[in-house]
């Protein structure tokens, strides 16, 4: 069983939902990024999304755009992010790691080599924002061969006619983008989620995580109750950014501040 499937099965057995955290790899530097990854499971993160920095993150709001710029400034690359996962894996063999990003850095790396190297580094899944099911052939065979899940985004605009096609191309879990918009801008209403999640459930048995616009423990708890997990990204990136010095470098308290916020989020998700 894959780490993602094992994690959701274990959570189900415990009767609780998943907190999925998102941070950009190498934000604001490799050491801080690794310290955060290592601290996240202990703070209550169940699955880790690691953003792969890209110059043109078209689905991301200003916070994650700036995170990518900070990471690129300290020399982040896709091979560097894989190395980061390898270093994390050396101390944690169970927490799933999902890389989230855009297709071009993978294309530059080489799709075949990337899937093999990512699996070897301990990557469990991929969320490729600009690779809809229509372009799945680009990487699906290689990802499957390497045992890496391709986690698809389902959006409010994905109607019933289209849902089966999207879900058929999905493995691991379903990522429900709760708003029509970019990351970190606005939040979905409870009513829209109460309509959307059962609609997706009718088409799939995969776990569903809700993301985009979840900032507070309250929102995370509410989303987790409706689905199988809640994804929090921009709110953590904002905390990290606010803790940096004027040159954009980590301060001694950076890691602790982010993990403290993760503990609060995890508490709410577990209480739900």
């Amino acid at each position: 069983m894959s780490r993602i499937a094992a994690k959701f099965a274990a959570l189900k057995a415990e009767g609780r939902k998943a907190l999925v955290t998102y941070l950009q790899g190498f934000d604001p530097d490799r050491e801080t990024s690794l310290a955060l990854l290592r601290g996240l499971p202990g703070a209550g993160a169940d699955l880790l999304e690691l953003g792969v920095p890209f110059t043109d993150p078209m689905a991301d709001g200003p916070s994650i755009q700036r995170a990518a710029q900070r990471a690129l400034r300290v020399g982040a690359t896709l091979p560097g992010v894989l190395e980061l996962v390898r270093a994390f894996r050396a101390g944690d063999d169970t927490t799933p790691v999902v890389l989230m990003g855009y297709y071009n850095p993978i294309l530059a790396y080489g799709v075949d080599g990337f899937c093999a190297d990512a699996a070897a580094a301990g990557v469990d899944g991929l969320i490729l924002v600009d690779l809809p099911p229509e372009e799945a052939g680009e990487i699906e065979p290689q990802a499957q061969a390497a045992g890496i899940d391709l986690i698809r985004l389902v959006a409010p605009t994905t109607d019933d006619a289209r849902l089966p096609r999207v879900l058929q191309a999905t493995s691991g879990f379903v990522y429900y983008v709760s708003i029509t918009g970019i990351t970190g801008t606005r939040s979905a209403t409870a009513a829209s989620l109460e309509e959307a999640i059962p609609r997706i459930r009718r088409h799939t048995d995969l776990p569903i995580a809700i993301g985009f616009g979840i900032r507070t423990p309250q929102q995370a708890g509410d989303a987790a109750r409706l689905a199988d997990g809640a994804v929090v990204g921009t709110a953590l990136v904002d905390t990290l950014a606010a803790s940096l010095d004027e040159d954009g470098r980590a301060r001694p308290e950076t890691v602790g501040l982010v993990l403290e916020q993760v503990r609060a989020l995890a508490g709410a998700v577990r209480a739900g």
């Binding site: 297709y103 924002v129 809809p132 229509e134 372009e135 605009t157 994905t158 983008v177």
Partner: peptide, 12 residues
Amino acid sequence: GGRFVAETLMPL
């Protein structure tokens, strides 16, 4: 060419 866009845009 192709259609490398986010799912939100794909139906549109």
